[in-house]
Nucleic acid binder design. Structure first.
Length: 154
DNA sequence: GCCAACGTTGGC
DNA sequence: GCCAACGTTGGC
C-alpha cells in the first residue's frame, strides 16, 4: 500500500464536498501535469491512503483523509470541449490523462496547517515543505504518513 | 534541441 | 493581489 497527498482548492472541491457526495466517493479529475499523471497512472492503487490538502485558501493544510477505491482510468473531461480540462491533443485511443476514485475516510477536527507541518523536524523530504514543489499529487512515505496522522484529531 | 516568452501554481 | 518558481510552448 502507498500513501499520497492530493491538493485541492476548497472553493472548488473540499473535504466536506467529498463527504457529501453519493457514497462519499468522487473521481479525482483534472490532473494536467505529467509528473502527477505518472503517479496516478502507475503507482496509485486501490486501498492507498490519501491526505486531502486544502491549497490557495485562508487555512492551508491537511484537512482530511480519503482512500483510493478505484485505480487509474481515463479522465473523461479531456475529451469534453465544454470542460476546462479539455485537451484537443489527447487521442481517445491512447488517452493522455487519467483519474482515480477516492472515498471519504475522515475529516480532521482541525486543519493540520502547512506552518505546523513545516515545523516538524521529521518532515523534511515531503514535497510540500520543499521550495518550489508544486505537484498536485505527491507521494508520502509510510513514516511521514504515520507521523502526520498522529498529529491529526479525527 | 535550445531557450525566451508565456501561463499557472500557490503561499503569503 | 503580488510574485517567485515552475512547466509548457513554439520559433529557430
Amino acid at each position: 500500500m502507498n500513501y499520497w497527498l492530493f491538493k485541492s482548492e476548497p472553493d472548488a472541491f473540499s473535504i466536506d464536498d467529498l463527504a457529501n457526495r453519493t457514497n462519499q466517493t468522487e473521481h479525482w479529475d483534472g490532473i494536467r501535469n505529467y509528473q502527477a499523471r505518472n503517479f496516478l497512472r502507475d503507482k496509485v492503487q486501490q486501498g492507498d491512503q490519501v491526505f486531502i490538502y486544502h491549497s490557495s485558501c485562508k487555512n492551508v493544510g491537511i484537512a482530511g483523509l480519503a482512500e483510493v477505491v478505484k485505480a487509474a482510468y481515463p479522465d473523461h473531461t479531456q475529451f469534453d470541449p465544454e470542460s476546462n480540462y479539455y485537451d484537443p491533443k489527447s487521442d481517445p485511443e491512447n488517452p493522455r490523462w487519467f483519474m482515480v476514485d477516492v472515498k471519504f475516510v475522515a475529516k480532521f477536527k482541525q486543519i493540520l496547517s502547512l506552518k505546523n507541518i513545516k515545523s516538524m523536524p521529521e518532515i523534511t523530504e515531503l514535497g510540500l515543505v520543499k521550495k518550489g514543489h508544486r505537484l498536485s499529487i505527491m507521494p508520502v512515505t509510510k513514516a511521514e504518513f504515520e507521523h502526520l496522522l498522529a498529529h491529526c484529531e479525527q
